Simulated scan of single mutants.
Amino acid sequence: MSERRTYASPPCMAAEVDPAYFDPLGTDPDQARDVARWRRAERLRLAAMRDALGQAGRAEVSERIGRHLSRALDARGIGPGVVLAGYWPIKGEPDLRPVLKTLHRAGVTIALPVVETRAAPLVFRRWTPETKMVRGDWNIPVPPPEADELAPDITLAPCLGWSADCYRLGWGGGYFDRTLAARDPRPVAIGIALTAANLPTIYPQPHDIPLDLIVTEDGVPAERMPAP
């Protein structure tokens, strides 16, 4: 009997899957464990800071981020034929679904990430405002298994924290890094974050892959790949 596949939206709940995660490829296991402990503490602090905004504050921040994201995407010539992978917001993440709907109406193909296999790269399934979502392992809405699987040209990544060199602090499961490492060609990766979540460093480990730019409610404070 084949193993039943299950579906879940990925990095959001990864810390609850493996809260003791540390980089197995690190050359110094003690240092890697110290970084893992520091990251766990920062995740709690940054999540609490985001929660403290309240519903109205998060709505305002989401609207501002959406405006800056739209400008950044326009600068990269987004339009019909481009596949953009968004995310379904949970745990106080900025809600960019209005932007995704606008892009869909403009002819951009929208996808959402799905975990098909634990500790493996994500897959991306097509989403439209009319898609009938199903519940994943953590009760998170995801496109159904019959939705088309797509290869994104651009992908958005919600960040708990970020650094000026475009490294992202997520929930800790490594799904997004695995996905960027596996994709060829690699999509343009855009971090979605709060300005106040800026960190001097996330202490990058061998598995960490930098994003191409960060978008916050105040603009684009970090960018590795300027728009053409």
Score class of each variant (00 low, 15 high):
G136C: 04
V123H: 12
F124K: 03
D137S: 12
E116W: 12
V134G: 07
D137A: 15
P121D: 08
R125N: 06
M133Y: 01
E130A: 11
A120T: 10
V108R: 08
F124L: 05
V115S: 09
E116I: 09
W138E: 09
L112V: 06
V134N: 04
K132P: 08
R105C: 14
R126E: 12
V114F: 02
V115G: 06
R105Q: 09
P129M: 07
T131I: 01
P113R: 02
G136S: 07
E130P: 12
G136P: 06
P129I: 06
I140S: 04
A106Q: 15
K132G: 14
R105L: 15
G136W: 00
A120N: 08
V114R: 03
P129K: 04
L112N: 07
R135G: 13
L122W: 09
A106N: 07
T131S: 05
A120Q: 14
T131L: 01
R118G: 14
P141G: 02
W138V: 05
A111D: 04
R125Q: 15
W138D: 09
G107R: 03
A119R: 12
A119I: 12
A106K: 13
P113C: 00
R126W: 01
V142K: 00
P121T: 03
E130L: 10
E116C: 12
V114E: 02
G107V: 11
A111P: 05
V123D: 03
K132S: 11
R126Q: 12
T109W: 00
N139F: 13
M133I: 06
R135P: 13
R105K: 14
V123N: 03
P121M: 03
N139V: 14
L122G: 10
R135A: 14
A119D: 08
V108L: 10
V134A: 11
P113Y: 00
T117M: 11
I140T: 15
V134F: 05
M133A: 09
R118Y: 07
P129F: 04
P129N: 11
M133E: 07
P121G: 04
V115F: 03
R105Y: 08
P113Q: 02
I110Q: 03
P121F: 01
F124H: 10
T131C: 00
D137P: 01
I140W: 03
A120W: 06
V134E: 15
W127F: 06
T109C: 02
F124N: 05
A106H: 10
I110E: 02
R135S: 10
R118W: 10
V115L: 13
T109H: 02
W138K: 04
I140V: 15
E116Q: 12
R135Q: 14
R125A: 04
L112Q: 07
A119Q: 13
P129E: 06
T128R: 06
R105F: 13
T117E: 13
V142T: 03
I110H: 04
V134D: 07
P121E: 05
W138T: 02
E116H: 11
T128G: 05
I110M: 10
G107W: 01
V134P: 05
A120H: 12
